[in-house]
Design a protein around this nucleic acid. Structure first.
Lengths: 243, 243
DNA sequence: CGTACCGTTGAGGTGAGTCAAAGTAAGTGG
DNA sequence: CCACTTACTTTGACTCACCTCAACGGTACG
């Protein structure tokens, strides 16, 4: 390891170049080294699974590249997606801390790179670092969990609204600002995935998309979406645009 | 404090007489004393609120007597109940660890007694006790959170099934075994509360109850419920009865 | 160039919501 | 103890958003 690196730089994981907002930022330099030497980087092709529902957790995963969909099959056989995770985020920590099998399957939506921080490493890191523990406690407490993570599955809310809400939620990750207040998306989601996220059937998603297109609110070309006027999205969900 | 008490007995909170399954069982005797001297016991009448959605958390609450309903109003104005908490359980810990305002309102379903363990005490307890932290991490990770805590709000699952599932979930708390495989309930829930728990309207709950009565599956007299054959409940949800 | 998956479209059914009104129970005050 | 208010519960009629099933066109990929 390059001795000329400052302590500040050393607090970064080789892979992720994470910022101060994530849990590892609590790590001491020696801990970062432990993290760097014991984590296992894995590549997954689109469609691959990072872990499966009911698997025994191996540790905590860091997504360093690409996007991952978290979904589960409930007792009644329904597929429900409740999270979409991208670079710089962790997955699998709920099961790790619950000391229980994975409640969800993590599927690569795009080709992606994921680092596994093995349980052994996690234990060592957590044992010596109360601040890190506190950080994970907070993450866990704020994570809506394998339930309605996106708050998109509320009854009484029409699919149309849920779909638009989804777009708004995905804007930060996949939206590219165009001229005026237009936004373009390149979603890594199949219709089925969208359906699982908003709690509907793929056919209904298709139909709802058609509606949105007829109203000129959002134009879908496959997985590419054009939103001419962002305001209209906020209008539909009935929430004022946050500054 | 009675000097004759054994250390074993001292590990019990004066109020709760809790068992080994709850977080405080990790406490040292000195910590238990701290807990006993700083906690604030409060009584609430039926209908009273223990804390309100968007309130700043004051600490963690222990329910020592009575039942509490956790519910929230989401961005679309829907009331959703996601938890029913009884004696020996904690509430408010999610917001405490999230370092965020309460995501839900806690309402007393019955007259009840609740102890507040103030944030200061919590900090002191957690700081000196990694095992306690680990315990809360697990609790948090296993708690489905302010989402569909009871897994009763899944789309595609008819209200009838959700209602029966609710009964099965509430059996441990409110069910009293009768002759044969019959069970009697005395629920502390209004129709509206049931509706909020299963994600439906009160009218629909009424109608569904009527259906169940016509089929001889469950007979409701106000808040008293007679279930002549428990098997039938399991049959409806399509899950074999767990041993 | 076929196989498999994804996406679209149509027809038809229905579970649960909405609205409105009446009935019932529960608590309050004179 | 009764009159009154207030909240809870039930019932009915109506509507519709979404599901289901089924068929077909597109597109990707070996």
């Amino acid at each position: 390891m390059d001795e000329s690196l400052t302590s500040r730089q050393l607090t970064k994981c080789d892979e992720c170049r994470f910022g101060a907002h994530i849990e590892w930022s609590e790590l001491e330099t020696s801990d970062v080294e432990l993290l760097n030497t014991t984590r296992r980087t894995r590549s997954h092709r689109r469609g691959g699974t990072i872990f499966n529902q009911d698997d025994e957790p191996q540790g905590i995963y860091c997504v360093s590249g690409g996007y991952v969909l978290l979904w589960r099959i409930d007792a009644f056989g329904n597929e429900t997606a409740f999270g979409l995770v991208g670079p710089g985020e962790r997955i699998g920590y709920r099961s790790y801390f619950a000391e229980d099998r994975h409640a969800a399957t993590a599927r690569a939506l795009t080709d992606c790179q994921v680092c596994l921080v093995p349980s052994r490493t996690m234990r060592r890191l957590l044992d010596g670092n109360p601040a890190l523990v506190r950080r994970f406690l907070r993450t866990l407490a704020r994570d809506p969990g394998p339930s309605d993570g996106l708050l998109l599955r509320a009854h009484q809310v029409p699919i149309r609204v849920r779909l638009v809400s989804l777009l708004l939620i995905l804007r930060d990750r996949f939206g590219v600002r165009g001229p005026d207040d237009s936004v373009e998306f390149n979603l890594p989601l199949a219709r089925q995935d969208i359906a699982a996220l908003v709690g509907a059937r793929a056919e209904t998603v298709t139909r709802t998309i058609k509606e949105l297109e007829e109203d000129g609110i959002a134009i879908f070309h496959g997985r590419h979406v054009d939103v001419p006027h962002l305001d209209q999205l906020y209008e539909i969900v009935g929430i004022d645009e946050p500054v």
